[in-house]
Computed example of a mutant assay.
Amino acid sequence: MSIKQSESRSGLKSKLASRNLEFEDSELEEALKKYNYFNLFNGIESILLSKTNPKTFNKVKLDDFIAIRVFNSIKI
C-alpha cells in the first residue's frame, strides 16, 4: 500500500462536487479547516453513498457529514 499525497483544498472541493455532495464553498472551507478531510469524510462516507463505483451521493449535504462527526464526538 502506497502513501497518498495530500490534495489541495480546491482539489478536494472538485472531488466532492463531482460526487454530487451539496455544499457552499465557504462552508466546506471552514469544515476542512476545522475537521480535515480524513476525519470528516473517510470512514463514514460509505453509509451516505448512493453508488460506490464511481462514488456518488444523492441529496447528501455537507451538513450531514458534520452532524455525524459531531454526534460521534459526544461523550456520554
Rank of each mutant, 00 (worst) to 15 (best):
P54W: 02
N42I: 13
S18M: 01
T56V: 14
D64A: 06
S10G: 05
L32T: 03
K34R: 08
Y35P: 00
S6W: 01
M1T: 12
I68Q: 08
R9Q: 06
N53E: 06
N42F: 11
L21S: 04
S26A: 10
A17L: 03
K15H: 06
I47V: 11
E45K: 10
K4Q: 07
P54V: 12
I76N: 15
S8E: 08
N58H: 08
A17S: 02
Y35H: 08
S10A: 02
G11H: 04
I74S: 10
I47F: 10
N36F: 09
S26C: 11
S26V: 09
I68N: 06
I76W: 14
N42G: 02
K4V: 14
I74D: 01
L32C: 10
S2E: 14
L32M: 13
Y35T: 13
N36C: 07
R69W: 12
F38P: 08
I66Q: 15
P54Y: 03
L48Q: 11
S14I: 09
I3V: 15
L21M: 14
E27F: 01
I68S: 03
N58L: 15
N20Q: 00
S10N: 11
E22Q: 10
K4Y: 09
L28I: 12
S73N: 02
G43P: 08
L62I: 13
D63M: 06
K55A: 04
F38I: 07
L12S: 00
R9I: 06
D25P: 03
E45G: 10
E24C: 13
S46Y: 15
E45Y: 02
A31F: 01
R69C: 02
N20R: 08
K33F: 03
L12Y: 08
L12E: 05
E7A: 01
A31C: 02
L21V: 03
E7Q: 12
S26K: 03
D64Q: 02
I66A: 07
A67S: 11
S14K: 08
G43R: 05
F71I: 00
L48Y: 04
I76Y: 15
A31L: 11
L21E: 01
D64I: 06
I76S: 12
S26G: 15
I44Y: 08
S26P: 09
K75W: 04
D64F: 00
I3T: 13
S14W: 05
N39E: 07
S50P: 00
N58R: 04
K61A: 14
K61C: 01
I3R: 11
K59C: 15
E24M: 14
N42M: 10
